[in-house]
Design a protein around this nucleic acid. Structure first.
Length: 590
RNA sequence: GGGCCCGUGGCCUAGUCCGGAUAUGGCGCCAGCCUUCUAAGCUGGUGGUCCCGGGUUCGAAUCCCGGCGGGUCCGCCA
């Protein structure tokens, strides 16, 4: 199964306004370089600042081969290529620069966006199926912010992958076995709600986590309780269906509360797969049987493990234990069964995991290969969100719950709306506050590359200015406001001419709008969500610039007004598309 | 002890894979801009040993080696 490379393959003219130009430039470049008779496939790059060029080729390495100054090479290439329609090619400081003329670019980009609207940047179906697993948090209590990064990265990637034409199924693997499920189950069966501290919310996850916390404490204090819990674990791991069903109920209740939180964040799961299913349907037994046949499988006191000595896993790890002495399975075994099954039902499996799972993911991969699975899951790892005081911990009370963060964000946004738009009806205010507040949270957690750790600060999470979701949403709302007013004054723009858009602000904005499809393509295929946030911000900033420099409704002529209105609408859709990809709603007013 | 990841102005951050054009932007701070389409905005200024030391190269934030600091992992837990 070969993935399309991150290099663009130029077959998407109808989706990407830059595709034709990129194709042409690289062909011109390639044939010109070929004349030097060097074996080199020149790679174009996107220059740091867009005024310079849309594509550029640095001539330094060629200069070395030919023993000529880079600038000289650039000039020679320029001469060989000569004049090309719609392109301005120049040789500057050792670079061969290709700049697309604004008029043809605007003429290709704006009508395309106006036609596609929300579908701008949507690529044709690839005919491949992806199962993307994200979150899979234990259902024993509400989400805290430390865990929120997982669903946010996962959901954004799912949106990106769908946008470039994959069929994506999002799965959440529910850990309903394990010790934490037994503790929760014991708590619900043996504790009365009155004896517990009041819940911070009426949501099921917040209510039930009290049983978990209290049961955990009792288990630590009382060996009898621990004994009971251990027996519960043993019986359901042997496949005791009654015991499992008893435990599944509270898990499922907690999960319902967690899902509510996810949905409020615009995150939707297609399928929940229960860990216990892999035991009940024989999947785990199958895995154990397969692994036992491996040459590197060893046994010690009845427990079976893979001897991974030769795999260079680092540290002191060399064993992957897949059955206990009593023959029952471990979490990793069940995870293996889940993945065995999952991989059979998709072309590509992607998992979003915390960096603490790196070793485990590697072991899983090795075990899958030993079992004869030819493809293994791709994993996107992320670092943790911690507090300034340190790691988040539910038991130490050192947590910020996602629900509380969402409430606070919405409340803060509500206050802003109240002062800015006092005339709006109440429900409209609330609606805007929600969209802005929750957008700020998602934006803040997706804008940083996943491998960097994040220290949670209320000030950052609730930032409504600068590099933030509300900044982008505000630009979108401004665009919508102009369009609304245009409609009121019946200023249609069917006879606009993109040729009239030639100020510097318009130029930069249009070039940026044209880049969106290739950005989407790149981000999806490299599995990097964070540049989408940067793009949304950049587009909003350029739109604000345009907004300030180029009066739309008060434009000097009807034709100019019509043309600018077209650009406003195109910008509006690009902003909406980018926001949607990061799961943020684009309000029409705020 | 070993493996993996991170280390860019006071704070946050892009760029790092694939080395090149004056290192991207935000927050903060300072000075301006609301009688023209929403000031959650715009303009200008301030601020950098790209953790440190070597090496490779015409050229290193980027590649290699060695340190330092932080995160994370190394269970018959999940």
């Amino acid at each position: 199964m070969t993935e399309p490379t991150s290099k663009f393959d130029n077959s998407f003219e109808s989706v990407d306004p830059l595709a034709n130009y990129r194709n042409t430039c690289s062909q011109l470049l390639e044939s010109a370089v070929m004349e030097f008779k060097v074996k080199k496939v020149p790679q174009m790059e996107i220059p740091t600042s867009p005024e310079l060029a849309d594509f550029a080729y640095p001539c330094f390495s060629l200069a070395k081969d030919l023993k000529l100054p880079p600038q000289k090479i650039a000039e020679m290439l320029l001469n060989k290529i000569g004049a090309v329609e719609n392109l301005k090619i120049s040789a500057v400081k050792g670079y061969l620069n290709f700049k697309i003329n604004l008029k043809p670019l605007a003429g290709a980009t704006i009508p395309l966006i106006l036609k596609e609207k929300q579908e701008y940047g949507t690529f044709p179906n690839i005919g491949k199926r992806i199962i993307l697993e994200h979150t899979s948090a234990n259902p024993n209590g509400p989400f805290h912010v430390g865990r929120a990064r997982n669903p946010i990265i996962g959901d954004t990637l799912a949106r990106l992958l769908r946008k470039v034409g994959y069929e994506v199924e999002v799965q959440y693997w529910v850990n309903d076995m394990g010790k934490q499920a037994a503790i929760l189950g014991w708590g619900v069966q043996n504790l009365s709600g009155d004896s517990l501290p009041a819940a911070g919310s009426t949501k099921k996850d917040h209510e039930l986590v009290r049983y978990y916390q209290s049961a955990y404490k009792k288990m630590e204090e009382d060996p009898d309780v621990e004994g009971v819990i251990t027996r519960m674990i043993q019986s359901y791991e042997r496949g005791d269906i009654d015991e499992l069903n008893k435990l599944k109920k509270p898990c499922s209740d907690v999960l319902a509360g967690m899902v509510e939180s996810l949905e409020r964040m615009n995150i939707f799961v297609d399928k929940f797969v229960w860990e216990s299913e892999s035991v009940l349907d024989g999947g785990v037994d199958e895995v154990i049987a397969k692994l036992k046949k491996s040459k590197i499988t060893k046994e010690e006191e009845g427990a079976y493990y893979l001897d991974l000595e030769g795999y260079e896993l680092g540290g002191k790890t060399s064993r992957f234990v897949f059955t206990r002495s009593d023959g029952t399975s471990l979490y990793t075994t069940r995870d293996l069964a889940y993945h065995w099954n999952k991989l059979q039902n998709c072309d590509i499996a992607i998992n979003i995991l915390g960096e603490d799972h790196k070793l485990q993911a590697r072991q899983l991969e090795i075990a899958l290969k030993i079992m004869g699975m030819e493809h293994v899951p791709e994993v996107v790892f992320y670092s943790f969100v911690s507090l300034e005081e340190g790691k988040m911990s539910t038991r130490k009370g050192q947590v910020v719950y996602l629900d509380d963060l969402m409430e606070e964000a919405a409340a803060r946004a509500r206050k802003e709306v109240e002062t800015r738009r006092p005339e709006l009806p109440d429900d409209k205010k609330s609606e805007i506050a929600d969209v802005v507040g929750l957008g700020a949270i998602r934006y803040n957690l997706i804008r940083v590359q996943p491998e960097k750790k994040i220290v949670f600060k209320w000030m950052d999470a609730l930032n409504f200015e600068g590099n933030s979701a509300p900044f982008v949403q505000y630009s979108h709302a401004r665009a919508c406001s102009i369009l609304r007013k245009a409609e009121e004054m019946l200023a249609g723009y069917s006879d606009y001419s993109t040729d009239l858009l030639d100020s510097p602000a318009e130029d930069e904005l249009i070039r940026n709008l044209a880049r969106l499809p290739s950005l989407i393509h790149e981000c999806a295929h490299t599995r990097k969500p964070h540049p989408v946030a940067a793009y949304a911000y950049k587009t909003a900033a350029l739109f604000n610039q345009f907004y300030k420099d180029c009066p739309v409704l008060p434009a000097e002529s009807d034709e100019l007004r019509a043309s600018r209105l077209a650009l406003v609408e195109a910008s509006r859709w690009a902003l909406a598309v980018a926001l949607d990809l990061i799961g943020i709603n684009a309000p029409e007013q705020m």
